[in-house]
Amino acid sequence: MPEQWTLTLRLYRQKANEAPRYDTFTLQVNPDEYVLDAVERVWAFHDRSLCFRHACHHSTCGACGMRVNGVEKLTCITPLRAVTQNGAVLTIEPLRNFPIVSDLVVDMGDLYRKMERVNARAVLPVTEAEIEHPASTWNPEDAQYLRLSDCLECGLCISACPVAATTAAYLGPAPLAAIQDQGMRRHPELLPLADSEDGVWRCHSAFECTAVCPSFVDPARRIMDLRRQVVGAKLRQVFGK
């Protein structure tokens, strides 16, 4: 018999034109289940009006980002054991810095517009992904193999970013990381965007994006690297190289 916990889920609820509120549901859970499983259980057995977004349940689609006890999590890979304990109350809220569609669902259209604008790569050669293998262990012919990029476009970094909280114009961590991924030398057309007032200089180095990123993108490091690249590109412009 798997371990059983009694858990109280406190869920943010909001329907169009209604005031927000929190609803609580007490469930019997297996602590090794994921937060998303518990939310889905509320929908299946307690309240069919609950809206939440989810698809792949294994961290490839980026649909199920929520704030769990205030912290952005991809709920499909966050075991209950990692964020709470037996008998506790677990608060689940929608991501910040996006308009709320209903309950735990936000409209991330703005993020997708920015990802399109920077032409973020969805698929890339396996050898270009900064993966655990040291680069030297790739065979030369491996460059022909492609993989889906690390960034799931899940919006967690935007929700956690203190600068994104103050202005929707800021490009934000994921789009800036996507510019860095393509590189200023290969994609000089992205320089004006990266160098704009809503670009790389608006970051205030809070490193929250990297802290919440569920998919190894490390946007903060990429933003810092992009600053170096932008300075390099500007210097090349000045000295005409």
Binding site: G70, P162, A165, T166, S205, A206, F207, T210, A211
Partner: peptide, 21 residues
């Protein structure tokens, strides 16, 4: 937006990088 400025000062659930900020 000035209302959202307050979120700048909310340390709950945040990490050392944000505390520094």
């Amino acid at each position: 937006s000035s209302r959202k400025l307050l979120t700048w000062f909310n340390p709950l659930g945040r990490n050392p990088g944000a505390w520094a900020f």
